[in-house]
Design a protein around this nucleic acid. Structure first.
Length: 423
RNA sequence: AGAGAGUUGGGUGAGUGGCUGAAACCAACAGUUUGCUAAACUGUCGUACGGGUUAUACUGUACCGGGGGUUCGAAUCCCCCACUCUCUGCCA
């Protein structure tokens, strides 16, 4: 959530930023934010003054009562009744301004960082770099959804029986590949200085608001109505919310956490072409890294996280490219996002396997995640996160890119985890 | 799931209608003392939103799990909700 103070002080910059996101009514919305804030402040000032008078009167009454001056006390009490009504009115005005202000702020996305390119859609994303050779596959190459059948390692039909479409069952070497990837990713993150956490995979409503899934994205999450809990769409939600309402010491920054969780997405309305096999699922596995940093260092951290993820892809011997998302394609809460895409050689497509973002103070403001600096004042921290990595599309590209007449070769780094060299 | 107890500042914990934004202790911070460390002593020490100021100072209001109510006045009384703990039941 944007800070009103920031909108007030950097109006033009915020406006320009929101326009980069192609937000049509940005100017109107920002003007309205300022107007509501003014109303909020003026009604508070008036209310506080009256309340101060009322408080004084109450004390006087107390003293009069003690002295047994009942008549005088009654007279003062009448004045108090008048004040009470006025206060109530101002209070309502104040509260309404606050509620409307908050509702409006919830509809405003984060302001993009200056380096974010303008643009409307994925077409306009900037390709930062491309790495690795695209393998030339022999005749008869198969897409991964054929390969998993041929080698009987992932079974979608069984998943349909148990849950439904988009809930695959991993079997034999397929299951072991999952486990190997998860362990490999976690071990790598540990080596890079992240602390491992195992968070709940169901979260309450407050957590959904904290990281920005709510309000608005509730349709994308599975919801357990009986207990009012959401299944997490990403470990970002529980891990970042560990720091909701937390005041950390500046010396503790940066905080670096990593966690493996399954992720659940309803993906309502997004099924169609290009979502075969592992390309899009309702349940998938992901290792997520989260950082909480000092505002001065968050973009360094973003670059760090980006190269960290690239390191993983290099070790897995997958050709990839890095995109800097344009204003129109970036997530609601992000100030800048890099997407990592691997090349899946049988589908002949780039597949997004990671998204690394800096949210600056946008989430921290909602979370009330602050740190106490050297000047003893508390200020909002910056939050970042990235997939490191999401499994299904990694599996898809490993299977496709490494297929050969004698089976599917496994990347060297995974072999110690797998206990076999090929499928 | 049933019964009971509880939720107070960074922590422990007092406080049952006005003198309590809140004792005391601990932690933290600053200073004094000290060859260093430690100890001792003194002081500071919640948050949010306003007013005010170049910025401080100063000042108002609110906040004792959340919401509502009673009252001139609520941490304190009443109602609803959430959460925690204990016992019983069930169970990986």
């Amino acid at each position: 959530m944007l800070l009103v103070q920031h909108i007030r002080d950097h109006y033009d910059q915020v406006l320009l930023g929101l326009k980069k996101r192609n937000l049509v009514h940005a100017d109107t919305a920002l003007q309205q934010v300022l107007a509501l804030d003014e109303l909020r402040k003026s009604s508070q000032t008036q209310r506080d003054q009256l309340q101060a008078e009322a408080n004084t009167i109450s004390k006087e009454i107390g003293i009069l009562m003690k002295e047994g001056k009942t008549v005088e006390a009654t007279a003062v009490r009448d004045r108090s009744a008048v004040l009470k009504n006025q206060i109530k009115e101002l209070e309502e005005q104040h509260e309404q301004a606050e509620v409307e202000l908050k509702a409006l702020l919830y509809t405003l996305p984060n302001v993009p960082y200056e380096a974010v390119p303008a643009g409307k859609s994925a077409e306009d994303n900037e390709i930062v770099l491309t790495h690795g050779e695209i393998p030339i596959l022999p005749e008869g190459k198969l897409p991964h959804w054929e390969l998993i059948k041929k080698y009987d390692i992932i079974d979608f039909d069984l998943g349909v029986k148990i849950a439904g479409a988009g809930f695959p069952v991993y079997k034999g070497k397929g299951a072991r590949l999952q486990r190997a990837l998860i362990n490999f990713f976690l071990d790598q993150a540990l080596a890079a200085g992240y602390m491992e956490v195992q968070p709940p995979i169901l979260v309450n409503e407050d957590s959904g608001y904290g990281t920005g899934q709510l309000p608005d994205k509730e349709g994308q999450m599975y919801y357990a109505t009986e207990d009012k809990l959401y299944l997490i769409p990403t470990a970002e939600v529980p891990i970042t919310n560990l720091y909701r309402d937390v005041l950390v010491n500046v010396s503790d920054l940066p905080i670096k956490n990593v966690g493996y969780t399954p992720c659940f997405r309803r993906e309502a309305g997004s099924w169609g072409a290009h979502v075969r096999g592992l390309n899009r699922l309702h349940q998938f596995d992901k290792v997520e890294v989260v950082q909480i940093t000092h505002p001065d260092h968050s973009y360094e951290a973003l670059e760090q996280m980006s190269s960290y993820v690239q390191g993983l892809l290099q070790q897995l011997e997958l050709p990839y490219r890095v995109l800097r998302l344009c204003g129109g394609d970036m997530g609601f809460t992000s100030a800048m996002t890099y997407d990592m895409e691997v090349y899946s050689a049988a589908q002949e497509r780039w597949l997004e396997v990671s998204s690394v973002s800096n949210f600056e103070t946008y989430q921290a403001n909602r979370l009330k995640l602050r740190f106490k600096g050297e000047d003893k004042k508390s200020q909002l921290a910056h939050t970042l996160n990235g997939s490191a990595l999401a499994l299904p599309r990694i599996v898809a590209s490993i299977l496709e890119n490494n297929q050969g007449p004698d089976g599917i070769r496994m990347p060297k780094v995974l072999q110690p985890y797998l206990g076999f060299e090929s499928i």
